[in-house]
């Protein structure tokens, strides 16, 4: 298996993601330069932090264009947490900001509701809405670990392959052709998370 590329663009700690791939026996390397992206068959965009800062960092290093080419070439890409939100068309976080738009979706703040804690933090269930090879050997209702204040609202229900309830029912796993996103942290979701990462690493 060739190594996976994990994009390092200054948005949070990537050690956990590398540890998780090591645990499941798939080599993963940090990718910091645009020229390096083409050398990988599979790319992961992790990250925590602000949406606009993330897009600005990717743009400054021209990683955004390299990632666009990776996706256009039909190669698999997985966005985790903030990385999943970047895949979407637009985010409402601190104004309106454009994402990659590989999947037609809007990133919105959780609406205020009595007794509802934001950020949505902790273990919550993913309900499988559509079959997808990314979900091989994962049961509907499995609990995974979330930390986020903004959620993904897909324009087409087709793209929301798993949903989760937290005041609203939102897309917790999105997929469209070769582009995938997970709102939770698979690297912190123990066995279920390892299975999801293994599935991504071995997609045909």
């Amino acid at each position: 298996m060739p190594p996976l590329g994990v994009v390092d663009y200054g948005m949070g700690n990537l050690r956990s993601v590398l540890n998780a791939f090591e645990e499941i026996g798939h080599e993963a390397e940090l990718v910091t330069e645009a020229e390096a992206v083409a050398g990988y068959d599979r790319i992961v965009i992790p990250g925590v932090g602000a949406f606009s800062q993330a897009m600005a960092n990717l743009s400054r290093s021209a990683l955004d264009e390299a990632l666009d080419r990776h996706v256009a070439a039909g190669k698999p890409l997985l966005g985790i947490c903030l990385g999943m939100q970047l895949i979407c068309r637009e985010s409402d976080e601190d104004g309106t900001h454009q994402g990659f738009g590989w999947i037609d979706a809007q990133v919105r703040h959780f609406p205020p509701a009595e007794g509802l804690k934001v950020p949505h933090m902790g273990w919550n269930a993913i309900e499988i809405a559509r079959e997808n090879p990314l979900l091989r050997e994962v049961n509907s209702g499995a609990d995974v670990y979330f930390v986020h204040s903004y959620y993904v609202d897909c324009a087409s229900a087709e793209d929301a392959v798993c949903t989760t309830e937290h005041g609203v029912r939102f897309a917790s796993v999105i997929a469209k052709e070769n582009v995938f996103g997970m709102q939770f942290h698979p690297e912190k979701s123990q066995n279920i998370g390892m299975q999801l990462l293994r599935n991504f690493a071995t997609l045909h």
């Binding site: 700690n13 956990s16 540890n19 670990y145 912190k188």
Partner: peptide
């Protein structure tokens, strides 16, 4: 952290940003 695939919180003697960043970089 190399063996921890659930959230990891760490504490004790954290009084400056550099040390905080070091702990996060090491997997906290």
């Amino acid at each position: 952290s190399k063996h921890c695939f659930v959230p990891l919180a760490v504490g004790g003697w954290i009084t400056e940003v550099d040390y905080a960043r070091e702990l996060l970089t090491k997997g906290a």
